[in-house]
Design a binder for these strands. Structure first.
Lengths: 261, 261
DNA sequence: GCTATTGGTTCATTATATGAACCGTTGGTT
DNA sequence: AACCAACGGTTCATATAATGAACCAATAGC
């Protein structure tokens, strides 16, 4: 494996829950030698990619990543463009809205917005990495990827997050055809217990599906009426963001969404 | 030099004006071998740090940087926290406002906001890297760094951007004492012709000065009244952002700002 | 059809990354 | 106080990964 890859895998260990990581912990979690970690972190620190937080010697992400992200957003508006739509969606439906996009071969959280409508809501801080087979967003994206991509995504073992997670690739694949027809996906507690969520795919200027937007709600609160609203609101939001990203909906999907509305 | 550093230097070539860079160009500008560039870019592409834009084979920054920036902002709110203040400042003064922060040993643009008050305004898109010796923000920051830091920042050759840029370290250093007394810095066309700008330093939870906020206006428009308003508005904005960043103003600066107001 | 440039590839050479063992320090336990 | 374990950081012989000159195939300009 290349050295650069190893260094960036180190960066990938940082999450919202684990914003501060010490040297030994870094070595343990990455499986790399402590000395190796140290040299890499020192190097990345010199470049501002990571920094050592105040008194503690633990590392956290540094200011240099902000510059890179600002440049990316200037070149390809993704997050900033979609953010208002995500917020409006959460407000409109009264539940947690959630935007994700493909990074490499993973689906990652890009943004989320809470609603103030209820005291209880589905929290999203912890969901950095979204498993394709167990989330509505993952299913929505997979339904619009090539067969080969789906094959490779489902080739590894599919971990069970709850008792009802589909861990059989065939079970997962069976849902995709339906999603292609209806234009939206759905999961019942397959990732987190007591959570129902609905999602639709998003497309960018490349022509491919590169993300998804979804809504997650406590299962008990999802009445048929709310469910229907989630679907229609998502279709509108999905069309909006796809337009903002310079993408175009596949004709079949466009039909499904317009006839549903 | 470490391999990781080289790879990240490659990333540093991307700017707002140069968002798309081809392989050969990358090799030329970095001074590295084309094969080396190729391997590094391939590796970084696999991680989503860069991607190849659509039809062209040229590279641009990838979606992975957004994730890192989102995590950084979640851990240490910097840009998102300060952004509203920057926008309010631009609106209030009617000129371009500009936020910068230290990354490694450089001062980089973090955000900026334009005012709609005038047809002409100072554009900021191109100012990614701010020279310490030739910008008001750079001077403001240097005035509150340690002597050793200032020494190393002024040790290299100081390029002249206009006919009036101070290229003598002594000239530059002479201004710092005044800035420490008044609490704000000023430049007249030392970076861009016909531009006058004023800036104040910003402090974060580390206790040190880690950035600056400034206003840039066409020189012809800077009346004594506008100049006075720039200074007072900046002091307020500087205090606000420093508070948002969890920092505290040095007592001397706090005095200077409060007696001025 | 010539030339120059592009992105990408190869493989012997060499420089760089690696990791077991080692410090000195810190913080908790007995 | 004595002990122990874990911490961040350092060393140096070894081994692995990076390197770069030369080479493709493809494209664009003339």
């Amino acid at each position: 494996m290349g050295t650069v890859t190893k260094a960036l895998e180190l960066l990938d260990l940082f999450t919202r829950e684990q914003a501060l990581i010490g040297l030994s912990e870094l070595a343990r979690q990455s499986g790399m030698n402590k000395a190796t970690c140290f040299r890499m972190m020192t190097e990345m620190q010199a470049l501002g990619l990571v920094e050592q937080a105040g008194a503690s010697k633990a590392y956290r992400l540094g200011p240099a990543v902000l510059r890179l992200a600002a440049l990316r957003e200037a070149a390809v508006p993704t997050r900033d463009a979609a953010m208002p739509v995500v917020q409006a969606l959460a407000r409109e439906v009264g539940e947690t809205a959630h935007l994700s996009h493909i990074v490499g071969t993973t689906l990652r959280t890009l943004a989320f917005a809470y609603s103030a409508a209820h005291g209880t809501k589905v929290m999203m801080e912890d969901a950095d990495l979204l498993p394709f087979h167990a989330t509505s967003s993952g299913l929505a994206v997979m339904a619009f990827l090539s067969d080969e991509s789906v094959d490779s995504l489902l080739s590894g073992p599919l971990p069970a997050f709850t008792a009802v997670t589909h861990t059989n690739p065939a079970q997962v694949r069976a849902q995709l055809a339906t999603i292609r027809l209806t234009g939206w996906s759905e999961t019942h507690a397959t990732f987190e217990a007591d959570v129902r969520s609905v999602a639709v795919p998003l497309f960018d200027a490349s022509g491919g599906c590169t993300g998804a937007i979804g809504i997650a709600a406590p299962a008990a609160r999802v009445t048929p009426a709310l469910h229907a609203q989630m679907v229609t609101s998502l279709m509108r939001a999905g069309a909006e963001i796809t337009a903002l990203w310079g993408g175009r909906l596949p004709p079949a999907l466009k039909d499904a969404w317009t006839t549903a509305a």
